[in-house]
């Protein structure tokens, strides 16, 4: 009986949990531009027509993502009072960091601006 229930549990794991993990991994490997496309956001929704190669303007990102304040609210963490436990990548002493300083549309995300010299937060960036 015990063995059977163990088998069932491991089957449930394979059927349900593994795909979730694999999907999550795929999500993180997916480039931001592809993610946008899947959500129905076309190239020219971000890049100006005729200037497809020029970097996206920050205001374009902010217009869909609720501005700096909206983003700050989304990633707000209360923390437990310990150092960096309330870290909010969208609200820091660096002020309004431009989206593209960290997030990249067509390549892997860069280390965050603040991580270039001072910190290593180990954040996983979309």
């Amino acid at each position: 009986m015990k063995q059977i229930s163990r088998k069932i549990i491991s089957m449930i794991f394979v059927i349900c949990i593994v795909p979730v993990i694999a999907f999550a991994a795929a999500q993180n490997n997916e480039l931001l531009a592809q993610k946008h496309l899947k959500q129905g956001v076309a190239c020219t929704d971000c890049h100006a027509i005729g200037e497809e190669k020029a970097p996206v303007k920050v205001d374009t990102c902010l217009s869909c993502h609720d501005g700096y304040e909206g983003m700050a609210k989304k990633t707000e963490k209360k923390g437990d009072g310990t150092y960096l436990s309330n870290l909010n990548p969208h609200k820091s002493h660096l002020g309004n960091v431009e989206c593209t300083e960290c997030h990249k549309g067509h390549e892997k995300a860069a280390t965050t601006t603040c991580e270039k010299r001072c910190h290593t937060f180990g954040l996983v960036l979309p």
């Binding site: 310990t82 150092y83 960096l84 436990s85 991580e115 010299r117 001072c118 910190h119 290593t120 180990g122």
Partner: peptide, 10 residues
């Protein structure tokens, strides 16, 4: 190697 604050600091 990088002279940056470690993730282990907190």
């Amino acid at each position: 190697g990088t002279n940056k604050e470690s993730v282990f600091m907190p």
